[in-house]
Design a protein around this nucleic acid. Structure first.
Lengths: 331, 331
DNA sequence: TTGTACGCGTTATCAG
DNA sequence: CTGATAACGCGTACAA
């Protein structure tokens, strides 16, 4: 419809120069109150809005855009992170671009490049497995990046916000041991995934502390998604040395475990990283490692804002706390 | 670190004019192959990337940004929509901005304004209750908008993508009637919400078709969130004329209903709009209205892409299909 | 207090 | 086939 009005238009109609309009828009002090009022009236009248693209074209003016690359925004874990980032970004007057890498490093790199073409002020990335190859300081050209949930590589040249994966797993498994369990199985996903590695290490920590020797036939790896975990559970319960408890390293695996137990009408103690709704309605003794995924996003965004504002300190690794929850005990 | 190279830099180093670089970057045909190769080599060498902000500063060049305003990106329903939008946007070379209105009309309006300041090519909005007042064609100034999940107003001057709320509810309740139920309660949220209204209408359709008179004391409204629905369920089960089945108009309400039934160790038939994981593990006869939320996003984005490409046809109302699912019956 | 002139990085026009 | 030059909308020196 109507073309969008520019400062030029406002200036012409208000009978002032473009610079005066700029001063009013940017709330600069040295403007005559009458002039200011007249210009403001024209702005309101025309519905003028500053063109942010033109504004940030000037050097020094950063673009107030930040970019997020996660594995899959449809995954509630990542969308909670996005929501947390959004909240902090909004408070700082930034907008958030979101895109999903689908865990493909090449797509991830491409998305970052596209973001850079759009002059983002900073990036937050939940890195893919092979991000270490593709995400480099040369790619970024000085644009700050904060990784979340997993590090880009280890040690990481970027700021990183992680969960306390190892301690959380250790505490959950220790709780199972406290409850008298000694044959505790673990079902993990892709063994190359950082979080799974840490959580497996925590599982071993707990066993070791209790003087329990880990049993290879109780340690299942490479079972991605609920379906695989379901099969793995059936396999575990069919073998001779059956576990009395199962530790699932994430909630998709926990879902599979619960499905399998439900199908067999078996009651087993289940511990899991990640909390979930309906935990209270499931008739199983559960021990859940709980945390606020939004806080991960908030922390990552807060760190990024510091970087955007020029913080040049060495890369930080921030660890977010987790808590143990036993459903039935209301918080 | 290194400043970002510009076309100017490429031109200087390759020994050509800036326009020739532009031609190579934009794959325009009339360039000498040798020149093209030399320029391309320089581009690769310097890692040059076109500045999209500068590009879209020119009139006519739209910005390849689209904006999404939903109630809460942390809500899996909305994040699935966002994921669907993202997918289509990516295929068309567009990037997605996301932000949450928190169901506040003023914030929603502000976010739309901010998006417009950033020159978005189009908008997708899951409108708040009072969006009818704030989202107007004047606000948008010709930028296309597609509403999703709810219309902005009725009739809607914008394209809208909705679920088949009424038919879905009707089919679910009809299923309950088929199973022999006649005292079927409904628990709905805020009666001003469009989807709840439609689903309530579908509930009444089903009763009417079966010749069952609706009973006011079985129709509960205004119970937002799982907690309220839990209380409402307790109240329903404490009154004289108890229902033998409950229809929950969304999954948060269903969660409350299931919690209450679990607490009372009661088995009741439950129908609900919205599918959810764990439905298979809950020991209750469930009837779920299921759909793919990503498809909502895909449809909205596809429509928006048509508008961005200049489609000037009258506003469309697209209805996405829903299916009935009875957990236990594997798909 | 206000205005003029220039530059940001790109694309479009039009001449060579 | 190639290049000089003028926009695009805004902010910033520097003048007035």
């Amino acid at each position: 419809m109507n073309a969008r009005p520019t400062m030029q238009d406002v200036a012409r109609i208000a009978g002032v120069s473009i610079k005066t309009v700029s001063r009013v828009v940017n709330q600069e002090p040295r403007v005559d109150p009458d002039t200011r009022a007249r210009v403001q009236a024209t702005i309101d009248d025309l519905g003028f809005r500053r063109n942010e693209q033109a504004r940030s074209l000037r050097p020094g003016q950063s673009s107030s855009l930040i970019g997020l690359v996660s594995g899959d925004l449809g995954n509630p874990f990542y969308s909670a992170i996005a929501r947390g980032i959004e909240e902090i970004a909004y408070e700082h007057g930034h907008l958030l671009l979101t895109a999903s890498s689908e865990e493909q490093p090449e797509r991830e790199r491409q998305l970052i490049e596209t973001y850079l073409q759009h002059n983002v002020a900073g990036l937050i990335v939940a890195p893919t497995l092979d991000a270490a190859r593709t995400i480099t300081p040369e790619l970024l050209r000085g644009v700050p990046l904060v990784s979340v949930d997993r590090p880009v590589r280890d040690p990481d040249p970027f700021d990183t916000v992680l969960l306390d994966n190892r301690a959380g797993a250790r505490r959950a498994v220790t709780q199972l041991i406290h409850d008298g369990h000694t044959r505790i199985a673990i079902i993990d996903g892709n063994p190359r995934v950082y979080t799974g590695q840490e959580r497996t290490a925590g599982y071993l920590d707990a066993l070791s502390e209790a003087g329990i020797a880990p049993q290879p036939n109780l340690m299942i790896h490479g079972h991605h998604g609920a379906r695989h975990a379901e099969e793995a559970t059936h396999a575990l319960l069919s073998q001779e040395q059956r576990p009395s408890a199962i530790f699932a390293t994430n909630n998709r695996i926990a879902t599979g475990v619960i499905r399998a137990l439900h199908a067999r009408r078996r009651t087993l103690a289940v511990a899991s990283f990640d909390d979930f709704e309906f935990a209270d309605v499931i008739n199983l003794p559960l021990t859940l490692v709980s945390y606020d995924a939004m806080d991960l996003g908030r922390a990552a965004a807060a760190r990024l804002m510091q970087r955007i504002q020029g913080d040049g300190s060495p890369p930080q690794r921030l660890t977010q706390p987790v808590t143990l929850r036993v459903p039935g005990e209301q918080p």
